[in-house]
Design a protein around this nucleic acid. Sequence first.
DNA 1: AATCGTAGTGTTTTT
DNA 2: CACTACGATT
Length: 747
Amino acid sequence: MSLLNDLNPAQRKAVLETEGSLLVFAGAGSGKTRVLTYRIAYLIQEKGVSPRNIFAVTFTNKAANEMRERVEHLLGSSARGIWISTFHSACARILRGHIDRLGFGKNFVIYDEDDQERHLKTVMKELDLDFKMFHPRAMQSRIDRLKNEGMMPEQYKPSPFNIFEKRLALVYQKYQEDLRRNNGVDFGDLLLFVTLLFRKFPDVLGSYQNLCRYVMVDEFQDTNLIQYQLIRHLVEGHRNVCVVGDDDQSIYRWRGAEVGNILNFERDFPGTKVVTLEQNYRSTQHILEAANHVVKKNRFRKEKALWTENPEGELLTLYVAEDEEDEARFVVRKISNDILSNPEESNRAYRHIAIFYRINAQSRALEEELVKHQIPYTIVGGLKFYERKEIKDILAYLKLIANPSDGISLKRIINQPPRGIGEKTMERIAVFSKEKGLPLYEGMREALKEDWLPSGSKERIGGFVRLIEEFSEEAKTLSLSQLTLTLLARTGYLERLKEEGTDEALSRVENIDELVNVLTELEQGEDQVSLETFLEKVSLVTDVDLYVDKENRVSLMTLHCAKGLEFPVVFIVGMEEGLLPHYRKGEEAEDLEEERRLCYVGITRAKKKLYLSRAEERSTFGVGRANLPSRFLDELPYELMQMEERERRRDSLFSQETHWLDDFNQSGNEMDFPMQESRFSEKQDIVISPDGFYPLRTGMRVRHPQFGDGRVKSIEGMNENQKATIVFRTEGPKRLKVRYANLEILE
DNA sequence: AATCGTAGTGTTTTT
DNA sequence: CACTACGATT
């Protein structure tokens, strides 16, 4: 059969072992996704398994989509009905169907980290806890951890001598109670509640066990305790479970991932067959050898070594920079001089290049340099669309409409835009609601019937309630995008932003615009999008999911984000003690090993060429600090490395930065010439291109419809987000979003 | 109630 | 250095 011809012996074995439990150790670049997809295809095509009985779980939507696409490619329409999903969306779907058994409404909302924190803070405030003594963040992470361990509040037994734990128990209890009152769940609850459901209601569990006859788990090394429990529940009985993972790529221990799950799998599932995929199809020999050398130093790992038939390839390049700016210059120099103008690699493009770093803060220096040289880039992760204030506000309106019990969203928008309903009014209503045992919104409506509210407040609250009632009514007939537009208009949210008129406000308007676009697009694609479905989707997207590599740009991301991706050319910057093994309080051997794995993940993303760099001095907090070379550099075999010489610094006289005062004077002088008028009209037909780069340069003279003439002092960002600081003759310096500024280039 | 200014504080990684 | 949380101000 042709399917099997595309596979090497180990891969083939992993596909053919369909019954019982199978553990696949899949080294980086060893064709893991190929095995999973072929296995699914094999089950359906050769074993006659119904697609409906196959369940595959991944960690990101991107991985899930990719898998679905590839299976569809193999099978065509007979792939229909396979359940391929992330842990979180699978759980959300299960809860959508059965959460009423746990005392929640099926229209529950999902709270993200930000909502979670707000909620936690109100809970802590009500318990009269001092934030300085008990950090909300610490509480939050402990609660998350408890949930990852499958621990409900009533099961948690704090040590009687530990004040923090005693308070934690209290907070956790109340936190959960109030979440329920809001008919909301947080991320951790999604998983926790499904295991609870399975444990308490055998009929529910049974129906899913029956459905999921063949279960596959991707990135198994990243599962935490509760996810593992979930899988075990699901495969009880038939035990057809295939888990794929690589202990060397476990980088989420801090988030509760248990490498133990993969290492103990054989113990928990007696009779497990084990397949190890060691042939790498991705990287050159040199890169692979380097990776093997580094990860070999870890003690807590299953012994294995990747090999490849690929060519030797180039040596790894190491550059020791003066500081982070010099490091950024090195990266950019390599990109423009070596990589893109190398005739041997004539098809190299920006999209083939990625830059990895340990922490997001490192991106800044790189971005600045990339912008300076007009190299297009995207940042994967970082500022997330659905976490922006304005987007979250609009979503909060929608959430409240979908689920009127959602007090967290209600509090968020009650005064957004400002309607004169202040904190103390809301506090009174909160107390009142709690006394009556009502959700906040209900309490608000009840309060209107009584007369303890000041008439002014009552008036305004009445107005708000009426507004929401109208929206709820309209939600029944309008499409999602129409509803959103109505909402934007009638709350005056957009109007207020536009009035504000600052560039920040304008960029918010643009983001909201974008949101409406997303909605409209969604409506055109699928037959019907319900409010709940949409909100759920939004709650569960991740940055990597939104990452589209279609455009020709250099990719910047953290090492964590890089997992699962590959690029012909990879830079790993900041190879320094303290940064790449990142120092934190309480260093443990396990932590160091995780850092090493992180480094390993980074190295193994590279297909053809790997550049490493470190800076002798790096400013953190604005203070320079000398860093020692990363110990991981020492772990690389010397023969594989080649040093990059430092370039002699050119005179900084030619730097693009000019003082704005100079611009001011310059432009001031020139504008005194009367002949300008004609010069302007000649150039009037210059249109700034709507996509790609806006052809602005520092030093250019431009005209703005309101502010008049000015000179470009500096430019930041790219494309639609590009901002420029322009020194106007009459208005002085202003920072504008180029896309909206409607600039005319004079010269 | 809303806005403005300041002091203190903190940077890992995120489903 | 950059952000935010809080306090003082109108």
